[in-house]
Simulated assay, not measured.
Amino acid sequence: MKICGPKCSLCCTLLSAWGIVQLGIMAVLFWVKSPAFIEDLSIPEEAHHNAGEFVDALDRSYKTIAQNCGIAAGMYVITLIISGWQVMVNKRS
């Protein structure tokens, strides 16, 4: 069953592969709490007044974003499978 053309399916395959690599690396870096991503964290304003609350909010934010990146990378895996299947369908026809 053909869903998209050869150029579209190839483009989606390449973008999916890149998305898996990029989001996989970002998930690992957030998981190990890389300080390079500290500006991307969402920390509530009231957590800035207490050091213990700030560290807890920091850890929760790192963990949440790492999980979100992992989920997004998994969604790219699904997109890669579908677009790779479409590349094969277009090669046969």
Rank of each mutant, 00 (worst) to 15 (best):
R92H: 06
Y62S: 01
P35W: 10
A47T: 06
S9E: 12
F37H: 11
G74T: 04
L29N: 04
R60K: 09
A36E: 06
P6W: 13
G70I: 06
A57G: 05
V32F: 15
E39W: 05
S16D: 02
M75G: 09
W18S: 12
I43E: 01
Y76T: 05
I38F: 01
K91W: 12
L80W: 08
L23D: 10
M1I: 12
C12T: 09
I20P: 00
D59S: 13
I81A: 15
C8H: 03
D40S: 06
N90C: 08
D56M: 05
C8T: 09
M26P: 00
P44F: 14
N90H: 05
T64H: 15
A66Y: 03
L41G: 01
V28I: 12
N90S: 12
V89Q: 07
V28G: 15
C11V: 06
N68Y: 15
I71P: 04
Q67K: 11
D56R: 09
A72K: 12
I81C: 13
T13S: 13
I25D: 11
L58F: 13
K33Q: 13
F54A: 04
A66T: 01
C69T: 05
N50T: 12
A73L: 06
A57W: 08
C69K: 15
R92G: 07
I25V: 08
C4A: 04
H49C: 05
S83C: 07
M26S: 00
A47V: 00
C8R: 11
E53N: 11
G84W: 02
E53R: 11
V32Y: 14
P44D: 07
C11M: 11
M1N: 11
M1S: 12
G19M: 03
K7L: 11
L58C: 06
V55K: 13
W18A: 14
A51F: 07
T79D: 04
V89W: 03
F30D: 01
W18K: 10
S34M: 10
F37S: 01
C11Q: 10
V87N: 02
V28W: 15
I65E: 12
A66L: 04
L14N: 11
G70A: 15
T13W: 09
A17R: 08
I82Q: 00
Q67T: 15
I20W: 05
V77T: 10
S93T: 03
I3E: 02
L29F: 09
Q86G: 02
A27M: 07
G5A: 04
L41R: 10
F54V: 00
S83L: 04
I3G: 05
I81Q: 08
E45S: 02
T13N: 10
L29C: 03
V77H: 11
V77Q: 08
C11E: 08
V32N: 06
C69Y: 15
S16Q: 03
I20E: 00
A57V: 02
E53K: 10
P35N: 10
L14Y: 10
L15A: 03
G84P: 03
G19W: 02
L29S: 00
K33P: 00
